[in-house]
Design a protein around this nucleic acid. Structure first.
Lengths: 206, 206
DNA sequence: GTCTATAAGCCGATAGAC
DNA sequence: GTCTATCGGCTTATAGAC
């Protein structure tokens, strides 16, 4: 009945994204996932091998896309004649906020991402850092170049605070309720603008 | 052998704090908790009634203390002749950072707090907001008074970012590795200083 | 590829002896 | 207060029919 035109694999991934975001990896069972996906219980192990592998493929699908968009946006910014702190931050946050408002599961995924960071789960942290750490380093390098007088130690502290503000704000997205007068697109752009202003000012602190 | 001089109830609370911080509420079982606490399995239900109630009492114990210290620190600041944005932020963050470096379980609790916020668990959010929301409102009021030209909407966005930066930085505490030349006390004071500078600048953004 | 049936084990909670 | 034993239910994973 629901999404019968998507493949079994895709239906499992989408249902898992929603349920894990709601209840956590330990909190949501494969039985719930297959029930929501309208798929047989055994299908998960047939297609993914195990629950843990399902989780990994779920992260891979979204993060590959997210980091590709961030890289593209940063390259675009660095081509311009006048690179500002604001434009670099914009390149970092815009793809994430687009994902955060995607109804097709991206919304759930962003909350899942926040949860994954709050969890001290080293296995998952390692997976993210190994596969996507290089993109974060590119951004850090660009930001550092724009703040030449800032000591490295101060920079690292501030980048940590910026990550936290973004992660939290995204996972919480929707708590700052969208006024009914704004479209989702306007709300998204507003969030990006607010974040960029706040983060730029924080990074430039005396 | 371990902590035999603490009561059964306290040993359960401490073990639960550690294990829930490591594995999540659904991820850690009462069997693990009682095993680490060196206590019989049935003791949890005898002393706390249920797993859910154990979690609530665990939060209550720490948050009562944390909010009391924050309230006291804020009152102290507001008594002074010249109240600054920095001093209000300091009153908010100092008690939390003290807790984050407490070896007696507070360290685990801070990570648990970050996890609880990442989880969209409405039950827990409501518990925190109902019992401790008034303290957060006091701080918001004081900050608002110090930034009279800032629109309310901008203020709410920025307070959200500040909460995120703090939550994330505390849960991640120790990732920004303490240089061996600094004592824990010095590292804690350094973290507070870095956070206050970043948050104050972000809040003052044009 | 999809199904049923079931294995093997962990879960929270409780009854009842001491 | 603390123990053992156990209930009923849930979990992941798999074997084997179709």
């Amino acid at each position: 009945m629901t999404n019968q035109h998507f493949s079994t694999k895709d239906r499992i991934l989408s249902a898992a994204e929603d349920l894990f975001a709601k209840s956590g990896f330990a909190g949501a069972s494969l039985r719930q996932v297959t029930s929501v996906a309208n798929v047989n219980l055994a299908a998960v192990n047939y297609h993914f091998g195990s629950k843990e592998n399902l989780i990994n493929e779920l992260f891979k699908r979204r993060l590959d896309e997210l980091t590709a968009q961030r890289t593209k946006a940063l390259e675009q910014v660095l081509k311009e004649s006048s690179v500002t702190l604001e434009s670099v931050l914009e390149a970092f946050v815009a793809p994430a906020l687009t994902l955060a408002q995607d109804r097709g599961g991206g919304q759930s995924f962003v909350r899942l991402l926040a949860r994954a960071f709050a969890e001290q789960d080293q296995r998952l942290r390692r997976f993210v850092s190994d596969n996507y750490g290089h993109v974060l380093k590119e951004f850090a390098k660009s930001i550092s170049a724009l703040l030449p007088h800032l000591a490295k130690e101060d920079l690292y502290w501030r980048l940590d605070f910026v990550s936290g503000a973004l992660t939290y704000a995204m996972s919480d997205f929707g708590m700052i309720k969208k006024p009914p007068t704004l479209t989702e697109e306007q709300h998204r752009r507003n969030a990006a603008r607010q974040f960029v202003r706040f983060a730029a000012a924080g990074l430039r602190a005396p």
